[in-house]
């Protein structure tokens, strides 16, 4: 059987909110080492990879590896019934066709349970190679959210260029053009306000803004976001989910026809 308890249930709520617009359904794979998900959006332009480690949970038990086919809009409906301060326990028997969610209020005076119907989903698992990137940029997640929101109101695609001057986001559309440049900045006492640009070589890539904006639905999960860029490869937009794990979004670039 599978059983996992997370005292900070709001994390699970935020994770599903971060995913559900991008991914309709997918398999959450459970194993003794934790929970993971790999899913593409319907147009196969981007991929979401979620890893939650067993030791990040308050309690984790999984006797047998199994995929749990989840419809994320339905998962979200149930998680919306959990209070922000609730502890959430997930439970499923081996080869179950449902996932039980139990919500406990922080003073344990209210307990509720819901069953989510599981689906059988055929999915291919892609191998994502470990690699070095030409540029890695850490910035406040709220800053990333603001940039992609602002630029989406101007254009459809963004040219992201990383040089020793900083990281520049450029777009254009019917309205006109927009450029936002962030410079390396570690002056704040608060680390989450830093912008750290780790540049091995200059790189410039073009991406569809609507996906980058969609990734910012994960903003509530982490104070900082990391962007990783290499020529002719997908951008990686990564949020650390506390001690629990991380969520990574991979977006394929626009390439010359």
């Amino acid at each position: 059987m599978f059983e996992a308890k997370i005292s900070q249930g709001s994390v699970l709520k935020k994770l599903v909110e971060a995913l559900k617009e991008l991914v309709t359904e997918g398999n959450i794979d459970v194993s003794p080492s934790g929970m993971s998900l790999q899913a593409m959006d319907s147009s196969h332009v981007c991929l979401v990879s979620l890893v939650l480690r067993d030791d990040g949970f308050d309690h984790f038990r999984c006797d047998r590896n199994m995929p749990m086919g989840i419809h994320f809009a339905n998962f979200s409906k149930i998680l919306k019934c959990a209070g922000n301060d609730d502890a959430i326990t997930l439970k499923a028997e081996d080869n179950a066709d449902q996932l039980t969610l139990m919500f406990e209020s922080s003073n344990q005076d209210r307990i509720s349970d819901f069953d989510l119907k599981l689906m059988s989903i055929e999915s291919e698992h892609l191998g994502i190679p470990d690699q070095d990137y030409s540029a890695e940029i850490k910035m406040p997640a709220s800053e990333y959210q603001r940039i992609v929101r602002d630029l989406t109101s101007i254009g459809d695609t963004v040219l992201i260029s990383a040089t020793k001057e900083g990281i520049k986001f450029s777009t254009s559309g019917d309205v006109g053009t927009a450029n936002v440049t962030l410079r390396h900045n570690t002056t704040s006492e608060k680390q989450e306000e830093h912008t750290i640009i780790d540049l091995k070589e200059p790189v410039a890539l073009t991406f569809a803004l609507r996906y980058l904006k969609n990734f910012s639905n994960a903003t509530a999960l982490a104070p900082q976001v990391k962007l990783s860029l290499t020529k002719d490869l997908p951008i990686v937009v990564e949020y650390q989910v506390g001690e629990l794990g991380n969520i990574r979004f991979y977006l394929a670039p626009k390439i010359d026809d």
Binding site: M40, H44, V45, C46, L47, E124, H125, L126, G127, I128, P129, T157, T206, A208, L233, P234, Y250, L251, A252, P253, K254, I255, D256, D257
Partner: peptide, 14 residues
């Protein structure tokens, strides 16, 4: 002119 690449083409098994 640029076109949108497919994400699967960048990873093994895609």
């Amino acid at each position: 002119q640029q076109k949108q690449a497919n994400i699967g083409s960048f990873f093994t098994g895609g």
